Amino acid sequence: MKNIATLTMNPTIDVSYDVGKVRHTHKMRTDNEHYAPGGGGINVARVFVRLGGNARSYYLSGGATGPALDGLVDLHQLVRTRIEIKGPTRIAADILEHDTSKEYRFTPAGPHVSEAEWTHALEVLAEADCDIMVMSGSLPPGVPTDFYARVTRLLRPKGIEIVLDTSGAALAAGIEQGELLLVKPSHGELAQYSGRSLDSHDAIGKAAMAIVEAGKARLVAVTMGHEGALLAHAEGTTFLPALKIEAASAVGAGDSFVAAMVHALCRGDDDLTAFRIGVAAGSAAVLRAGTDLARPADIERMLGMAEPA
């Protein structure tokens, strides 16, 4: 089994509450209060470790909220490398309204990171010792959009494979740098990268295959929400329809997908099997409200339902 490391440049303290009804102005009493360490890479590490793998979490942490994030990471028994910054770690809120079963999510942009701080982060990452680096989540203000591309240039000469899950300009720069094992855009993120509307599975498949054929990534997994997911690789494209489940939350589905797919690849599963496991994990993550992410038993249950269309 290969070991991974994850990078979270814009982590969160994820807090979730339940409330009877959301009303403006009024004080709303909540219950089921829960705190968890969050942000793309940290979420990936949480699920990867649950599945029996080894993962080191690299992340930025600072301000008065930084120690709280560090403590939550420790509670989840994650091996960590904290990269200190001055700005406070952001806090994201997930609110479940019982009356409607609707979910409300509030996510700040994150702290400003100085050039000295992100340059130091590159120096720390240059010493990473792992088989695969999973770079996941947004970049905070102040960090250049080609940051993930810079990390790729540092680590690929060491033989470390790269997985990328981000959006916008950071995604574009990362893909253009190339040499990726796996990139996981959403349908909308792939359309933005491609610069055109992708209004059919065929169009999505062609856009994903263009990345593979250009040698930018060996695997491109496109998540499509309630429609399903598509994998592009050297042998072509495979579409998996969304599983017929009742979603209670949208938190962590993509991160769970990445964690489970990478875990399967690390243990030697073939690309299509790993893709099916990723789809199962993404579905497992939304079964329960809040920020708990996918659980192995739920992934196994969902796996029996994840078959190609």
Score class of each variant (00 low, 15 high):
E161M: 04
L240Y: 03
E189P: 07
G236C: 01
V212I: 12
C130H: 09
P241I: 13
H187E: 11
L182A: 00
A210T: 04
S138L: 06
H226P: 02
K158R: 15
H226M: 06
Q177G: 08
T223A: 01
P157V: 11
H201K: 05
Q192D: 15
A214K: 13
A191M: 12
G236V: 03
S138E: 01
M209T: 12
E246C: 02
G228H: 04
F147H: 08
I132P: 00
D129Q: 09
P141F: 15
E246W: 05
H233T: 08
K184H: 12
S167G: 11
A208D: 08
L190V: 10
D129L: 03
L164P: 00
G188I: 04
E176N: 14
D202Q: 06
H201W: 10
E213V: 13
K184S: 09
P140C: 15
L198K: 01
G205F: 10
V163Q: 06
K184C: 14
H201Y: 01
R153I: 02
I175K: 12
D131G: 00
L171H: 02
P157I: 12
A221L: 02
V212G: 10
V143S: 03
S197V: 15
P141I: 15
E176Q: 13
A247T: 04
P241Y: 06
K244W: 01
E213A: 15
Y193H: 15
P185H: 14
G225C: 08
G159M: 10
Q192T: 14
Q177R: 15
G205N: 07
I162D: 09
I204S: 11
K216H: 15
L219S: 05
A242S: 07
L190Y: 04
A149N: 08
P140Q: 14
R153C: 13
P185S: 13
G137N: 06
L171S: 02
G174Y: 13
T166G: 11
R156P: 05
I160R: 03
A232H: 03
A191Q: 14
S200Q: 06
V134R: 01
T237E: 02
R196A: 14
A229G: 03
K158E: 07
I204H: 07
T237C: 12
L155A: 09
R153W: 04
G215A: 14
I245N: 10
G195K: 00
L164Q: 07
G142V: 05
E189T: 11
L154T: 08
A128D: 04
K206P: 04
C130I: 06
L231R: 08
D165R: 12
T166K: 05
R156T: 15
H226V: 06
G168K: 07
A173T: 05
L139S: 05
I211N: 13
E179C: 15
A173D: 11
I211V: 14
V222R: 03
E179P: 05
F239V: 12
A221G: 01
A247D: 02
I160M: 09
E246P: 00
D129G: 02
L198N: 01
L181K: 01
S194P: 03
V183E: 05
S167Y: 10
H233L: 09
A170I: 02
A210K: 02
A169Y: 10
A128L: 03
M133D: 09
S136R: 04
M133V: 08
L190K: 08
L180W: 13
D165Q: 11
G215D: 09
E246T: 05
M224T: 10
T166R: 03
I245D: 10
